[in-house]
């Protein structure tokens, strides 16, 4: 039975405070419980933080360990410098996909950076407050649209349209994929740039106007340079999203392992090739190892970008 009236309760009022100090140790009283739960909580928190690190470490080790097995059958030079990807006949050249990813990302950034920065300037500098309060949440919602929806959009609306414009039978390829990716990363880049531009102190603008500059000069010469780091941050985040995006790209790029000779030639990138082939190969095969190696390349690129972001933030911190 649980004793509802422990003896300590029946003591004189003057002894009540004393019991707290005296009766600690062997008995599991309130003070101990507090101390214990605090310690336990701390340990749980430390464990969780370490767990997050462990996940990254596991992923890194596993990707590298599986990927490196490729090179027991394939030479480094073939994997990185050959464009012949024909696993059925033992040809494992991944250059097509690496170049494809680089080309797709640069083309996407080429289209999306100018448009996003203009949209950000529009949101931060030009719109009246009511419109701004309406548009910002809308852009936030657009960030949450699933990527496969954008892929579907590209497949059913964009590609037929590109077909009639370009006159090609198949319009799948770099241009279609980069337009879809642009629509996808645009809300991200413009919202973060918008925040960066809004964070520029108003006294900068006042000073520029006081010197006789008009709005164009103020934005170009003063506001944008001051928000440069934040915009770079937004661009890198958008770039990371574009590089890692899989499903939207798979649906519009054509998935053919060939070097594209035009913007409308079906080709493939690292992510699309992995997702199309991974489910049909044996785990213990060079083909699979090759796919894991490609995954590791993706991982390395995205981690490098994080290092770039951190350096930017450090630089920004020192300046301000």
């Amino acid at each position: 039975m649980i004793d509802m009236n422990p003896p300590s309760d029946s003591k004189a009022p003057s002894e009540l405070g004393q019991s707290f100090a005296k009766v600690s140790g062997a008995k599991f009283d309130r003070k101990m419980r507090l101390r214990w739960s605090n310690k336990l909580f701390r340990i749980v928190c430390i464990g969780s933080a370490l767990f997050v690190c462990l996940v990254l470490l596991c992923i890194l080790v596993l990707m590298l360990r599986t990927g490196i097995l490729t090179f027991s059958n394939v030479s480094l030079a073939e994997f990185f410098f050959s464009t012949n990807w024909d696993p059925e006949n033992e040809h494992y050249g991944a250059l097509t996909f690496i170049l494809g990813t680089l080309a797709l990302t640069s083309l996407t950034m080429l289209i999306s950076i100018p448009i996003s920065v203009v949209v950000a300037v529009f949101l931060a500098e030009m719109t009246p407050p009511w419109l701004r309060n309406l548009l910002r949440p809308v852009l936030d919602l657009l960030v949450g649209i699933p990527s496969v929806v954008y892929g579907f959009l590209g497949l059913t609306l964009l590609i037929p349209w590109l077909r009639t414009i370009s006159g090609h039978d198949l319009a799948d390829g770099l241009l279609a994929a980069s337009i879809v990716l642009t629509i996808m990363v645009l809300p991200t880049i413009s919202r973060i740039s918008d925040d960066a531009i809004s964070a520029v102190p108003n006294k900068y603008r006042d000073a520029a106007y006081a010197l006789g500059a008009n709005r164009f000069q103020t934005v170009i010469r003063v506001v944008l340079p001051a928000a440069k780091n934040g915009i770079m941050y937004a661009v890198i985040l958008g770039m990371a999203r574009a590089i890692g995006e899989t499903m939207a790209v798979v649906m519009v790029i054509g998935n053919t392992a060939q070097l594209p000779n035009s913007l409308f030639t079906p080709t493939a990138v690292l992510t699309s090739n992995i997702v199309m082939q991974i489910s049909s190969v044996e785990f213990d095969s060079t083909w699979n190892y090759g796919l894991y190696m490609m995954g590791f390349i993706l991982l390395a690129i995205s981690l490098l970008m994080i290092v770039a972001v951190r350096m930017l933030q450090k630089k920004g911190g020192r300046n301000s």
Partner: peptide
């Protein structure tokens, strides 16, 4: 931060 930038397909491979 590094984990947050890992492309989703890598989690799939993992």
């Amino acid at each position: 931060e590094g984990l947050s930038s890992v492309p989703s397909i890598i989690f799939g491979l993992f």
